[in-house]
């Protein structure tokens, strides 16, 4: 479904990604692991169009989408929930959700909105409140719900569990699993490696801008060397 082949990307003169390739098959959950500063967010920004790769190719559903803008990629079916959630703090919870459906013109927006409020009762309770007044966990739910409102084919999640309490983290992983089961493909970036791999089909390990390992989630979970290097510190 998504094929990233040999991309280089960075910020101005700073090269971050060097020849990064990865593949996401339709219907799966794929996780990118790696230490802080490894280039995980840079990869997500490249796939979602926030950054233009200086070399390499990204194709989605068989079409070359390298260099497209985020709003164009959203229309093709790629939605990103960025690191730090990026809720529109000055807009209400309801308006945030409506903005998720900004590009849609179909007649099912309202019913999707109601479904979303039903799935996340806490958002319904606070629908008139400004996004900025929500707690971290609630903001993450809102960010995910907002992305779902765009009906993505591929959902990119950049560290959705960051800064959240363990109970909320478990909730978030459950939601990701559900989203996937309802037919959306997921590309996930996580530092909560063990939990992420448990719900994933495949994993990649990024180190200082290079892919250093990849494999089935179960393989990675049982690979002692990788577990120690990347997954050992934060067990759950």
């Amino acid at each position: 479904m998504l094929e990233v082949s040999g991309i280089h990307a960075g910020y101005g003169k700073i090269q971050v990604l060097k020849d990064v390739s990865l593949e996401v098959e339709e219907g799966t959950i794929v996780t990118i692991l790696g230490a802080n500063g490894a280039g995980k967010s840079t990869t997500m920004k490249s796939v979602s169009g926030l950054l233009k790769p200086s070399a390499g190719k990204i194709s989605f559903l068989g079409e070359d989408v390298t260099g497209l803008r985020p709003d164009q990629l959203l229309r093709k079916g790629i939605a990103l929930v960025p690191e730090g959630r990026q809720i529109l703090a000055g807009m209400t919870v309801l308006e945030n959700l409506e903005m998720g459906a900004y590009h849609r013109k179909d007649s099912e927006i309202d019913s999707d909105l109601n479904k979303m409020l039903e799935r996340f009762p806490i958002l319904k309770e606070r629908e008139k409140q400004l996004g900025g007044t929500l707690s971290g966990g609630q903001q993450q739910m809102l960010a995910i719900a907002r992305a779902i409102m765009s009906r993505p084919k591929l959902l990119l999640l950049d560290e959705p569990s960051m800064g959240l309490a363990p109970l909320v983290v478990a909730d978030i992983f459950k939601i990701i699993k559900e989203i996937n089961q309802s037919g959306t493909t997921v590309l996930l970036v996580e530092q909560n490696a063990r939990q992420a791999l448990k719900i994933s089909d495949k994993g990649y390990v990024l180190e200082t801008g290079k892919m250093v390992a990849s494999g089935n989630a179960t393989e990675l979970l049982s690979d002692a060397r990788i577990m120690e290097a990347y997954l050992g510190k934060r067990s759950s």
Binding site: S48, G49, L50, R69, P70, D71, L74, R75, A79, L80, P82, Q86, L88, A89, G90, M91, E95, E98, M99, G100, Y102, H103, R146, S150
Partner: peptide
């Protein structure tokens, strides 16, 4: 609403399809 979203955060607005 697209204008307000853009005013608040250009990147977020573009990720939402604006």
């Amino acid at each position: 609403k697209a204008l307000r979203a853009t005013a608040e955060n250009l990147e977020t607005a573009s990720l939402l399809g604006v």
